[in-house]
């Protein structure tokens, strides 16, 4: 798939195939990113007074950002972690801890949260990276269970099963706002940062090495890539961004218990499935996936939740099965395919 990547290694040489990342320079990508953000900004502007929709948008942007972070190691590196909720939870607890105990503004508390998540991810992943494919996925799932048990046990940090709640003291320094618009913009900022990081990595040496490992780790090793080191770096960056998302989530909902933060379906698997539905390994795929999945789920929960509880997850499950069956490269992959076909006539 990325056999031709080497040719466009510096990102300048134009590649023929659009499925390669070297197609456009970073500056063009930056332009695209700004356009994407402007479109999202317009959507937000359209719903300015609508609290309900702004809430959905804030969640959508948050999950788009989380999925983008997952995409670094899951999409580029091909390591299907189902345990990213661990890093999400670390971010949430560190941010809340620093803010509530030490009075550190959440804006600054995000930094230690990200660093700790990166360290933990490297320590944990070092042994687990020996495993490949499904075994890696199962191990990361088991990891989530371990951390969930530990989180419930160490009540002093996590508040145990009751969870912790951040007192409502509004103000910019506390990252607590009364209006939903601020949160929507905050999450949009997070999304923009994750997209920027992904777009940058996709063009860097690290990105090409990750893709080489995804396509064939043995060949990559033979080509002189330090497989474990590359995977660890990818994982650490992904985990750090995930933790920042967790910190933002904590300040957004202000109350969280271990089962919510470490929930397989609401975090760990959801970021993976949003990426899969949107388009795995693509830059805007996770965003597209989140734009489809999160509002759809909220809408279904609001309309059908009373009559048919769980209907939102039934629909999501069906979408997931259909995506796996018919749309392997997700929405972004399908859109790209159509675009390529239009541009190049009959070549597929």
């Amino acid at each position: 798939m990325t056999a031709a990547s080497g040719r466009a290694f510096d990102g300048a040489a134009p590649s023929r195939s659009l499925s390669n990342y070297g197609v456009v320079g970073f500056r063009v990508e930056l332009l695209r990113l700004i356009v994407a953000m402007a479109i999202l900004g317009l959507i937000v502007a359209f719903y300015l007074g609508d609290t309900f929709t702004l809430n959905i948008l804030a969640t959508t942007f948050l999950f788009a950002g989380l999925a983008t972070a997952w995409n670094i190691i899951g999409g580029l590196g091909g390591q299907f972690s189902l345990g990213h909720s661990v890093f999400f939870a670390i971010g949430a607890y560190v941010t809340a801890g620093f803010y509530m105990r030490l009075g550190v503004s959440p804006w600054f508390a995000l930094a230690p949260a990200a660093v700790l998540a990166a360290i933990v991810s490297a320590l944990v992943s070092f042994p687990v990276f020996r495993l490949r494919g499904p075994f890696f996925a199962i191990a990361t799932m088991a990891l989530t269970e371990v951390v969930l048990s530990l989180a419930l046990y160490f009540e002093s940090v996590t508040g145990g099963a009751r969870g912790i709640s951040v007192p409502f003291r509004r103000g910019f320094a506390n990252m607590i706002f009364t209006d939903r618009l601020s949160y929507a913009l905050l999450m949009m900022g997070f999304l923009a940062i994750t997209l920027l990081v992904l777009a940058y990595i996709a063009r860097s040496r690290l990105g090409y090495e990750l893709r080489a490992i995804r396509d064939n780790d043995r060949t990559a090793e033979a080509a002189g890539i330090n497989v474990v080191r590359t995977k660890l770096i990818g994982m650490a960056i992904s985990a750090a961004l995930m933790a920042i998302g967790g910190g933002l989530y904590m300040m957004y909902v202000r109350v969280a218990d271990p089962p919510t933060l470490l929930s397989l379906f609401d975090i760990g698997v959801k970021v993976a499935l949003i990426t899969l539905i949107g388009g795995i390994g693509t830059i805007y795929g996770p965003l597209l996936g989140a734009l489809l999945v999160v509002p759809l789920e909220s809408m279904l929960r609001a309309t059908l939740g009373g009559v048919f509880p769980g209907s939102n997850l039934v629909v999501l499950g069906i979408i997931l099965i259909l995506t796996a069956l018919y749309l392997r490269k997700g929405i972004a992959g399908a859109a790209e395919g159509i675009y390529t076909r239009i541009r190049k006539g009959r070549r597929t």
Partner: peptide, 27 residues
């Protein structure tokens, strides 16, 4: 069967199945 040789896609498909069955029964 259509997903043979794609272990990760099979994982996601069985996850989808899990969600459909669990929440179908819930409903």
């Amino acid at each position: 069967r259509p997903l043979q040789g794609e272990p990760m896609m099979q994982i996601f498909a069985t996850f989808g199945l899990l969600m459909v069955i669990e929440n179908g029964i819930l409903g």
